[in-house]
Every structure is written in structure tokens, then in C-alpha cells.
């Protein structure tokens, strides 16, 4: 059978559905920012921005941009009624002090034990880390949003990360364009596979055993 991979917007919509009412959430720069477009309108969810905003709202209408009110990606945003501003050290206390319920982050690689590599591909690039390491160790739940495979077809879910680490054993769940994968003590547990995608095919593409959700470990 054939299957169509999820678009980035579709992955974002999946993640947004799983964010509960009342959650304090940080959406990483890049792909995870898309999740903000899909948050259910009937839930109150608090978006946090590392540069000192809680209750961050969507982008302003054209002409109403205020460059004193920007997100972590330095794009203009708005503040919801009830939102708050605070300084950087308080903002990172929220991140590092286990106050955020969920951080959604992009990744280059995630290991079977939840190691995250998302800040550097090594090599010659100018190194830049921003708040990635703070979110990785500080949020109660780190969810990764990424394409399952690299452009050349290699799995981004790996036994051991080969790119520089952001944090050790920090990722709990991975949303890819093929499935949702929980990192558990008994290994990778997948659910919400694309229609037409079998566990055998997912295993083959990932190169690592993937258990069906609800399945028991082999005796």
C-alpha cells in the first residue's frame, strides 16, 4: 500500500490537538511555531516566549507591528488579554525551573533513549544555541516535531545521536510525518501511523524496533 506523508501543517495540527486546556507551552523557533496556528479555539493555552512573554498571541495585522513586542524568532507578535511581560531571568526560571508543561522543539536527531540533538550539526557553521538547552532540560514534557527521515532517507530517530547533543534523555514524544512515537523504558512505541503504513515498514524506515502502542513486550 502507498501512503502520503503528513505536511508540516498536518503535524502541527496533530500536536495542537494533544495540548490540553491550561497548559503552559513553549513552541521552538522554526517548524514548531506552526503549532500556534492550530491551537483549539475552545481551550485556554498559555504560550511562553523566552524573551519575556506569557500569553503570547498571534502575529498582528499588517501595519500594527510593534518591534518592542516580538517572539523568540524576532517576529512581531501580540499579547493576549491577561498576558504578562517579565525579564529574561524570570523567563528562563520558568523554563529551567520545571514550570512549563510542554516544549515543542525541532530536531536533527533523537535517540531511542530520548537524547536530543537540535542545536548544531557540527562542522564549520558558527555555533549558536539560544535557549535550546534550557528548554530541553527544563520543560516537564519535551515533544519533538520533525520529519521522520532526512532528505537522503536516513532515519532521524537513531540508536545514538551523531550530532552534538542538546540534552540527555529529555525527549518524551516525537511527532513525525509518519507517526507519533513515544520514548518509553521498553523502547519506541508508535501510534497514529499513517493510513497504509505498516509497523514493519515503519520499523524498516526507522532502522530500530518500533512497538505498537498498547502492545506488550515480547516474553
Amino acid at each position: 500500500m502507498s501512503y502520503a506523508k503528513l505536511t508540516r501543517e498536518q503535524i502541527a495540527a496533530r500536536i495542537a490537538r494533544d495540548i490540553p486546556e491550561g497548559a503552559y507551552v513553549n513552541l521552538g523557533i522554526g517548524m514548531p511555531t506552526l503549532v500556534g496556528n492550530h491551537l483549539p479555539k475552545d481551550r485556554e493555552i498559555f504560550l511562553h516566549s523566552e524573551n519575556g512573554i506569557l500569553g503570547m498571541g498571534p502575529a498582528p495585522a499588517a501595519g500594527l507591528e510593534d518591534m518592542d513586542l516580538i517572539n523568540a524568532g524576532k517576529e512581531p507578535v501580540t499579547l493576549l488579554t491577561g498576558g504578562a511581560y517579565f525579564h529574561h531571568t524570570d523567563s528562563f526560571a520558568m523554563m529551567r525551573g520545571r514550570h512549563l508543561d510542554i516544549a515543542v522543539l525541532g530536531a536533527f536527531q533523537v535517540s531511542v533513549s530520548g537524547d536530543l540533538a537540535n542545536w548544531s550539526t557540527g562542522g564549520d557553521a558558527i555555533p549558536a544555541v539560544g535557549g535550546a538547552m534550557d528548554l530541553a532540560v527544563g520543560a516537564k514534557n519535551v515533544w519533538v516535531m520533525m520529519e521522520h527521515l532526512t532528505k537522503t532517507g536516513e532515519s532521524k530517530i537513531v540508536e545514538r545521536c551523531t550530532y552534538p547533543l542538546t540534552g540527555i534523555g529529555v525527549v518524551k514524544r516525537i511527532y513525525t510525518d509518519l507517526a507519533v512515537i513515544d520514548i518509553t523504558p521498553r523502547g519506541l512505541v508508535a501510534s497514529q501511523l499513517l493510513p497504509g503504513l505498516t509497523f514493519e515498514e515503519l520499523h524498516r524506515l526507522t532502522g530500530i524496533p518500533v512497538l505498537p502502542s498498547g502492545a506488550r513486550a515480547a516474553a
Binding site: 523566552e50 529574561h88 531571568t89 523567563s91 528562563f92 523554563m95 529551567r96 558558527i126 555555533p127 549558536a128 544555541v129 539560544g130 535557549g131 535550546a132 538547552m133 534550557d134 527544563g138
Partner: peptide
């Protein structure tokens, strides 16, 4: 920055943002 860094004319200490602030 990139040009000066690559030419070895400026030193960089890279610090995670929360650690920088703390």
C-alpha cells in the same frame, strides 16, 4: 561577526541563554 570570528579577530564564548542570564 562571522567574518571577524573566522579571521580569528574576535573570541566567542557561547553560553546557553538561560545560563547567560543566570
Amino acid at each position: 561577526f562571522e567574518a571577524l570570528y573566522r579571521a580569528g579577530k574576535v573570541e566567542l564564548e557561547l553560553v546557553p541563554q538561560g545560563t547567560l542570564s543566570e
